[in-house]
Amino acid sequence: MGKLFDAALVLEYAPPIFLRFHVTLAIVAASVVGGTLLGLLLTAAQLHRTPGLSLAAAGYISFVRGTPVIIQMFIVYYGLPLALYRVGININRWNKLYFVLIAYALNNAAFMAEIIRSAVLSVPKGQSEAAWSVGLSGFQAFRRIVLPQAFLTALPALGTRLVNTFHDTSLAFTLGILDMLGQAQAIGVRTYHVLEGYVFAALVFVAVSLLLEKGFTRAEAAFGRGVKK
Protein backbone atom coordinates (compact mmCIF):
# COMPACT_ATOMS: atom_id res chain seq x y z
CA MET A 1 0.00 0.00 0.00
CA GLY A 2 2.81 2.41 0.87
CA LYS A 3 2.77 5.90 2.20
CA LEU A 4 -0.18 8.18 1.62
CA PHE A 5 1.93 10.97 0.25
CA ASP A 6 5.56 10.82 -0.82
CA ALA A 7 7.04 14.23 -1.53
CA ALA A 8 9.91 12.70 -3.48
CA LEU A 9 7.43 11.19 -5.92
CA VAL A 10 6.03 14.64 -6.69
CA LEU A 11 9.40 15.51 -8.19
CA GLU A 12 9.67 12.17 -9.94
CA TYR A 13 6.28 12.51 -11.60
CA ALA A 14 6.71 16.19 -12.39
CA PRO A 15 8.46 15.83 -15.79
CA PRO A 16 6.01 13.38 -17.40
CA ILE A 17 3.05 15.40 -16.13
CA PHE A 18 4.45 18.75 -17.15
CA LEU A 19 5.22 17.33 -20.60
CA ARG A 20 1.44 17.24 -21.15
CA PHE A 21 1.05 20.92 -20.37
CA HIS A 22 0.95 21.73 -24.09
CA VAL A 23 -2.40 19.94 -24.34
CA THR A 24 -3.80 22.32 -21.72
CA LEU A 25 -2.30 25.24 -23.63
CA ALA A 26 -3.85 24.02 -26.88
CA ILE A 27 -7.30 23.94 -25.28
CA VAL A 28 -6.81 27.40 -23.78
CA ALA A 29 -5.60 28.75 -27.12
CA ALA A 30 -8.61 27.31 -28.94
CA SER A 31 -10.97 28.80 -26.36
CA VAL A 32 -9.35 32.20 -26.52
CA VAL A 33 -9.06 32.50 -30.31
CA GLY A 34 -12.22 30.63 -31.28
CA GLY A 35 -14.15 32.05 -28.35
CA THR A 36 -13.22 35.65 -29.14
CA LEU A 37 -14.14 35.36 -32.82
CA LEU A 38 -17.40 33.54 -32.13
CA GLY A 39 -18.04 35.88 -29.21
CA LEU A 40 -17.76 38.91 -31.49
CA LEU A 41 -20.26 37.28 -33.88
CA LEU A 42 -22.60 36.54 -30.99
CA THR A 43 -22.32 40.12 -29.76
CA ALA A 44 -23.08 41.41 -33.23
CA ALA A 45 -26.08 39.08 -33.41
CA GLN A 46 -27.27 40.15 -29.99
CA LEU A 47 -27.00 43.86 -30.68
CA HIS A 48 -28.60 43.37 -34.10
CA ARG A 49 -32.10 44.61 -34.65
CA THR A 50 -33.41 41.41 -36.22
CA PRO A 51 -35.41 39.96 -33.31
CA GLY A 52 -34.90 36.30 -34.26
CA LEU A 53 -31.16 36.70 -34.44
CA SER A 54 -30.73 38.44 -31.09
CA LEU A 55 -33.08 35.96 -29.44
CA ALA A 56 -31.12 33.00 -30.79
CA ALA A 57 -27.87 34.53 -29.57
CA ALA A 58 -29.36 35.23 -26.15
CA GLY A 59 -30.66 31.65 -25.94
CA TYR A 60 -27.29 30.20 -26.84
CA ILE A 61 -25.51 32.38 -24.29
CA SER A 62 -28.01 31.45 -21.58
CA PHE A 63 -27.63 27.72 -22.32
CA VAL A 64 -23.86 27.77 -22.28
CA ARG A 65 -23.68 29.88 -19.13
CA GLY A 66 -26.32 27.76 -17.43
CA THR A 67 -24.81 24.31 -17.97
CA PRO A 68 -21.58 22.69 -16.79
CA VAL A 69 -18.75 22.71 -19.32
CA ILE A 70 -18.18 19.00 -18.69
CA ILE A 71 -21.65 18.27 -20.10
CA GLN A 72 -21.14 20.61 -23.03
CA MET A 73 -17.95 18.77 -23.86
CA PHE A 74 -19.72 15.42 -23.99
CA ILE A 75 -22.64 16.83 -25.95
CA VAL A 76 -20.19 18.05 -28.58
CA TYR A 77 -18.33 14.75 -28.48
CA TYR A 78 -21.45 12.64 -29.04
CA GLY A 79 -23.61 15.15 -30.86
CA LEU A 80 -21.30 16.74 -33.42
CA PRO A 81 -20.54 13.51 -35.36
CA LEU A 82 -24.25 12.76 -35.39
CA ALA A 83 -25.19 16.21 -36.67
CA LEU A 84 -22.46 16.24 -39.30
CA TYR A 85 -23.21 12.68 -40.39
CA ARG A 86 -26.68 13.82 -41.37
CA VAL A 87 -25.19 16.32 -43.79
CA GLY A 88 -22.81 13.72 -45.12
CA ILE A 89 -19.62 14.47 -43.22
CA ASN A 90 -18.07 11.62 -41.31
CA ILE A 91 -15.89 12.68 -38.39
CA ASN A 92 -16.10 9.49 -36.37
CA ARG A 93 -12.40 8.94 -36.78
CA TRP A 94 -11.45 12.34 -35.42
CA ASN A 95 -8.99 12.67 -32.59
CA LYS A 96 -10.87 13.26 -29.34
CA LEU A 97 -8.87 16.41 -28.76
CA TYR A 98 -10.56 18.15 -31.69
CA PHE A 99 -13.94 17.75 -30.04
CA VAL A 100 -12.55 19.20 -26.84
CA LEU A 101 -11.08 22.17 -28.69
CA ILE A 102 -14.41 22.85 -30.41
CA ALA A 103 -16.38 22.41 -27.20
CA TYR A 104 -14.21 24.83 -25.25
CA ALA A 105 -14.26 27.41 -28.04
CA LEU A 106 -18.06 27.18 -28.18
CA ASN A 107 -18.20 27.48 -24.40
CA ASN A 108 -15.89 30.45 -24.15
CA ALA A 109 -17.73 32.26 -26.96
CA ALA A 110 -20.79 32.76 -24.77
CA PHE A 111 -18.75 34.23 -21.93
CA MET A 112 -16.72 36.40 -24.29
CA ALA A 113 -19.91 37.69 -25.89
CA GLU A 114 -21.18 38.83 -22.50
CA ILE A 115 -17.90 40.56 -21.69
CA ILE A 116 -17.64 42.24 -25.09
CA ARG A 117 -21.25 43.35 -25.06
CA SER A 118 -21.19 44.99 -21.66
CA ALA A 119 -17.84 46.62 -22.42
CA VAL A 120 -19.07 48.04 -25.73
CA LEU A 121 -22.24 49.31 -24.09
CA SER A 122 -20.18 50.95 -21.34
CA VAL A 123 -18.53 53.34 -23.80
CA PRO A 124 -20.54 56.59 -23.69
CA LYS A 125 -22.61 57.37 -26.77
CA GLY A 126 -20.86 60.75 -27.04
CA GLN A 127 -17.63 59.02 -28.04
CA SER A 128 -19.25 57.57 -31.16
CA GLU A 129 -21.01 60.83 -31.88
CA ALA A 130 -17.76 62.77 -31.68
CA ALA A 131 -16.12 60.23 -34.00
CA TRP A 132 -18.95 60.56 -36.52
CA SER A 133 -18.82 64.35 -36.23
CA VAL A 134 -15.19 64.42 -37.36
CA GLY A 135 -16.18 62.31 -40.35
CA LEU A 136 -15.37 58.75 -39.29
CA SER A 137 -17.59 56.06 -40.76
CA GLY A 138 -19.57 53.79 -38.44
CA PHE A 139 -17.00 51.02 -38.72
CA GLN A 140 -14.05 53.39 -38.30
CA ALA A 141 -15.64 54.91 -35.22
CA PHE A 142 -16.20 51.45 -33.74
CA ARG A 143 -12.73 50.16 -34.51
CA ARG A 144 -10.69 53.23 -33.62
CA ILE A 145 -12.64 54.80 -30.76
CA VAL A 146 -15.19 52.42 -29.20
CA LEU A 147 -13.27 49.14 -29.33
CA PRO A 148 -10.03 50.41 -27.72
CA GLN A 149 -12.01 51.96 -24.87
CA ALA A 150 -14.18 48.88 -24.50
CA PHE A 151 -11.07 46.71 -24.41
CA LEU A 152 -9.71 48.71 -21.53
CA THR A 153 -12.94 48.38 -19.56
CA ALA A 154 -13.07 44.67 -20.32
CA LEU A 155 -9.49 43.92 -19.35
CA PRO A 156 -10.15 42.83 -15.73
CA ALA A 157 -13.07 40.62 -16.82
CA LEU A 158 -10.94 39.17 -19.62
CA GLY A 159 -8.26 38.30 -17.10
CA THR A 160 -10.71 36.49 -14.85
CA ARG A 161 -12.15 34.71 -17.88
CA LEU A 162 -8.74 33.54 -19.03
CA VAL A 163 -7.99 32.08 -15.59
CA ASN A 164 -11.42 30.40 -15.53
CA THR A 165 -10.88 28.95 -19.02
CA PHE A 166 -7.54 27.64 -17.89
CA HIS A 167 -9.17 26.01 -14.85
CA ASP A 168 -11.98 24.58 -16.98
CA THR A 169 -9.48 22.68 -19.12
CA SER A 170 -8.89 20.50 -16.08
CA LEU A 171 -12.07 18.62 -17.01
CA ALA A 172 -10.85 17.43 -20.39
CA PHE A 173 -9.35 14.30 -18.83
CA THR A 174 -12.87 13.00 -18.19
CA LEU A 175 -13.13 12.47 -21.95
CA GLY A 176 -9.84 10.59 -21.92
CA ILE A 177 -7.63 13.46 -23.01
CA LEU A 178 -4.06 12.96 -21.89
CA ASP A 179 -3.43 16.39 -20.40
CA MET A 180 -1.71 16.97 -17.06
CA LEU A 181 -4.55 15.43 -15.06
CA GLY A 182 -4.93 12.57 -17.53
CA GLN A 183 -1.24 11.81 -17.12
CA ALA A 184 -1.48 12.04 -13.31
CA GLN A 185 -4.27 9.50 -13.37
CA ALA A 186 -2.42 7.24 -15.77
CA ILE A 187 0.57 7.28 -13.43
CA GLY A 188 -1.77 6.63 -10.52
CA VAL A 189 -3.20 3.55 -12.18
CA ARG A 190 0.28 2.20 -12.81
CA THR A 191 1.87 3.00 -9.45
CA TYR A 192 -1.01 3.39 -6.99
CA HIS A 193 0.40 6.84 -6.26
CA VAL A 194 -2.10 9.32 -7.64
CA LEU A 195 -2.06 12.03 -4.99
CA GLU A 196 1.50 13.11 -5.83
CA GLY A 197 0.53 13.70 -9.44
CA TYR A 198 -2.56 15.65 -8.46
CA VAL A 199 -0.55 17.81 -6.11
CA PHE A 200 2.00 18.59 -8.80
CA ALA A 201 -0.77 19.46 -11.27
CA ALA A 202 -2.34 21.70 -8.62
CA LEU A 203 1.00 23.46 -8.18
CA VAL A 204 1.21 24.14 -11.92
CA PHE A 205 -2.34 25.49 -11.94
CA VAL A 206 -1.59 27.76 -8.98
CA ALA A 207 1.64 29.07 -10.49
CA VAL A 208 0.12 29.79 -13.89
CA SER A 209 -3.00 31.37 -12.37
CA LEU A 210 -0.89 33.70 -10.25
CA LEU A 211 1.26 34.61 -13.26
CA LEU A 212 -1.79 35.36 -15.38
CA GLU A 213 -3.27 37.51 -12.66
CA LYS A 214 -0.06 39.46 -12.24
CA GLY A 215 0.24 39.87 -16.01
CA PHE A 216 -3.25 41.30 -16.31
CA THR A 217 -2.72 43.71 -13.43
CA ARG A 218 0.40 44.94 -15.23
CA ALA A 219 -1.43 45.20 -18.55
CA GLU A 220 -4.22 47.22 -16.95
CA ALA A 221 -1.68 49.65 -15.52
CA ALA A 222 0.19 49.88 -18.83
CA PHE A 223 -2.83 50.34 -21.12
CA GLY A 224 -4.72 52.49 -18.69
CA ARG A 225 -1.99 55.10 -18.27
CA GLY A 226 -3.64 58.50 -18.29
CA VAL A 227 -6.71 57.17 -20.03
CA LYS A 228 -8.87 56.18 -17.08
CA LYS A 229 -11.25 58.82 -15.93
Binding site: V163, H167, D168, S170, L171, L181, V194, L195, Y198, V199, A201, A202, F205, V206, A207, V208, S209, L210
Partner: peptide, 13 residues
Protein backbone atom coordinates in the same frame (compact mmCIF):
# COMPACT_ATOMS: atom_id res chain seq x y z
CA UNK B 1 -2.98 29.99 -3.88
CA UNK B 2 -6.18 28.06 -3.21
CA UNK B 3 -7.98 30.21 -5.79
CA UNK B 4 -5.52 28.92 -8.38
CA UNK B 5 -6.61 25.30 -7.98
CA UNK B 6 -9.41 24.04 -10.22
CA UNK B 7 -12.44 22.57 -8.47
CA UNK B 8 -11.92 19.10 -9.91
CA UNK B 9 -8.58 18.88 -8.09
CA UNK B 10 -10.25 19.78 -4.80
CA UNK B 11 -12.60 16.86 -5.39
CA UNK B 12 -9.97 14.37 -6.51
CA UNK B 13 -7.42 15.30 -3.85
Amino acid sequence: VLKGIPLVLYVLI
